Simulated scan of single mutants.
Amino acid sequence: MNEISLKSFEPWLARWQLVPDGAPLATHASRLLPVLQGSAPAMRKLPEAEDKRRGYLPLEYWNGNGAASLLARSENGLFRS
């Protein structure tokens, strides 16, 4: 995988008051960044594939019951615990 810069996550770090808590990661369809919001661990996801951009739908439906909690979303990504 290519090295990922924190720069691509910067708009959301400030917007959602997130602090990086590890190195960025890449999968075949997303860029991920472990973060902290206050003392709570979470993951910032920037999906690159269209089906992954709609990944918030089941998370919203399940509302944390048997799935990761969706803390926030934007047109370009997800923020979940």
Rank of each mutant, 00 (worst) to 15 (best):
L36R: 15
A68W: 00
G55N: 08
L32D: 02
H28I: 04
W12L: 14
R44K: 07
P41I: 04
P20M: 06
E48Y: 00
P47V: 04
K7I: 14
G66T: 10
A68H: 02
A67H: 01
N65V: 14
S39H: 08
G55K: 05
Y61S: 10
V35H: 00
K52Y: 01
L46M: 08
R54N: 13
M43H: 04
A14T: 13
A49Q: 08
R53K: 11
A14V: 12
P34L: 02
A40L: 13
L18D: 03
P34S: 05
K45N: 09
L6Y: 12
N65K: 13
W12K: 05
W62A: 12
E48F: 00
D51E: 13
G38I: 11
R15V: 10
R53Y: 01
W16K: 10
Q37W: 03
S39N: 13
R44W: 11
Y61H: 13
Q37L: 08
L36E: 07
S39K: 12
T27R: 05
A42C: 13
A29T: 07
F9M: 08
G64N: 08
S30W: 01
E48D: 07
W12Y: 11
P58F: 02
P24Q: 02
K45G: 07
L18C: 06
W16Q: 12
V19K: 12
R44I: 09
M43C: 15
D21E: 05
L59D: 04
D51V: 07
P11K: 08
K7A: 15
L59C: 05
Y61G: 09
N65R: 14
V35L: 00
Y61I: 09
W16E: 12
E48S: 05
L25F: 01
Q17D: 15
L6V: 14
S30C: 11
K45R: 13
P47C: 04
V35Q: 00
E10D: 06
E60I: 10
R44Q: 11
S30P: 02
Q37R: 15
Y61L: 14
Q17R: 15
E50L: 09
P47I: 04
A68M: 10
G22M: 08
A67Q: 03
R54H: 13
A42N: 07
L33V: 00
P11L: 09
L18S: 05
G38R: 07
W62K: 03
G64A: 09
P20Q: 07
K7V: 15
Q17E: 15
P11M: 09
N63D: 15
A49T: 05
E50F: 03
G55E: 15
S30E: 08
R53W: 01
L57R: 14
P58W: 01
R44P: 02
G66I: 11
L36I: 10
P20Y: 04
G64W: 02
P11W: 06
A40E: 15
E60L: 14
Y56T: 06
W62S: 05
G66N: 11
G66Q: 10
R15C: 14
S39I: 08
G66K: 11
G55Q: 11
R53A: 09
P47A: 05
L25N: 00
P34C: 03
R53T: 09
S30F: 01
D21A: 14
K52M: 04
S5Q: 04
L36G: 06
P20F: 03
P41H: 06
A26H: 05
A67L: 04
P47F: 02
L32E: 02
P41S: 10
